[in-house]
């Protein structure tokens, strides 16, 4: 827990520093994808359920909030409605998905994502189809980009603290039991399908929170935000940052936004680069950046500590996705 407090402080420092190097809207995007990456990791890293469909709930919340804001409704209504819709749809989708495990689970999440994408694609009257949903107004008090960034940061920290609480609660422990050994988790009396469903819905709802804010960043929801490729990008963030720690995915999210922001303007084929990085991480850095950093940190710290005992004995953490 102590360690988490330090990491939360480091995160705070980054949140303050980022806008000094980047446009405020790009910085806000980093935080938004940070929420998505960490929340998806509750499901992937903590519970051991690899979902390739999280963009669906991001998109659903973004469209819902965007449409309501466009209709002139206040944020105080639009934001909860976006989250609620992400919660309800993930509740329905999750009900079917948690009945399956492994590859079948992944395929189901993927298939549902595709379904929502096609709905958004053909329902042009509402979603704007291929062109995306433009012209989303921000509430007056958020018109200034810096104010908007501060608002995003506040929501970001609220989400981080809430999610930290969840993974350190008995609920979070049950998630880890399911990842470690679903059969025994059931044998000691936990209804694992129910808890997997909770994990699914919690992860997707926080992703929904991110979606509602995203709608206001550039005042548009492009259709690729609900495409399954975006779901793949989210998994990239987890693997790159390290799904083995709570904060690791944040590194992945920041790196992803930074890369897409920097390289997309100079080279249209920039996703190729991401592919190369991905291959490198999977082959040589299985624990992601988080593991790399903690290894370096431990190497410097070791001489003072007890050399027999590894520093990293805390178990309030998820486990990397390994295949």
């Amino acid at each position: 827990m102590m360690q988490n407090k330090y990491l939360l402080l480091i995160t705070l420092a980054f949140v303050v520093v980022i806008p000094m190097f980047m446009p405020p809207s790009t910085s806000a995007e980093m935080l938004i994808f940070g929420i998505i990456a960490v929340s998806t990791n509750i499901m992937v890293g903590y519970t051991g359920m690899l979902s390739f469909g999280q963009a669906a709930y991001f998109g659903i919340a973004a469209y819902t909030a965007g449409l309501m804001l466009k209709a002139g409704m206040p944020l105080i209504l639009a934001a909860p409605a976006g989250v609620l819709l992400a919660l309800v749809t993930s509740g329905i989708v999750g009900y079917f998905c948690v009945k399956r495990t492994g590859l079948y689970f992944i395929c189901l999440t993927f298939a549902f994502n595709q379904m929502f994408y096609f709905i958004a694609y053909v329902w042009t009257d509402v979603t704007g189809g291929e062109d995306g949903l433009p012209g989303i107004p921000r509430p007056d008090f958020l018109n200034d980009d810096i104010t908007f960034y501060v608002f995003t940061a506040v929501v970001f920290f609220a989400c981080m603290i809430a999610m930290l609480k969840i993974v350190n609660s008995p609920l979070g422990l049950v998630f880890k039991l399911i990842r470690e050994n679903p059969n025994r988790a059931e044998a000691i009396g936990y209804n694992i399908q129910l808890f997997k469903w909770f994990s699914f819905v919690i992860a997707s709802s926080f992703t929904g929170v991110a979606g509602t804010i995203y709608a206001m960043v550039y005042s548009i929801v492009p259709i690729d935000q609900i495409h399954w490729l975006k779901s793949g990008d989210i998994i990239f963030m987890l693997l790159f940052g390290g799904s083995g720690s709570f904060f690791g995915p944040l590194i992945g999210a920041a790196a992803y936004i930074w890369m897409s922001d920097t390289f997309s303007v100079i080279w249209a084929r920039w996703p190729l680069m991401m592919g190369v990085v991905f291959v490198f991480v999977v082959l040589f850095m299985r624990g992601g950046m988080a593991e790399l950093i903690s290894n370096i940190y431990n190497r410097f710290k070791k001489p003072n500590g007890d050399p027999e005992k590894p520093d990293d004995t805390s178990t309030d953490k998820p486990v990397e996705v390994r295949s």
Partner: peptide, 17 residues
């Protein structure tokens, strides 16, 4: 058939809880 990455305490705690 236990929970390998969790501590002894967490293993038993979870079953009691």
């Amino acid at each position: 058939n236990v929970f390998p990455k969790l501590t002894i305490y967490e293993n038993v705690w979870a079953a009691v809880f």
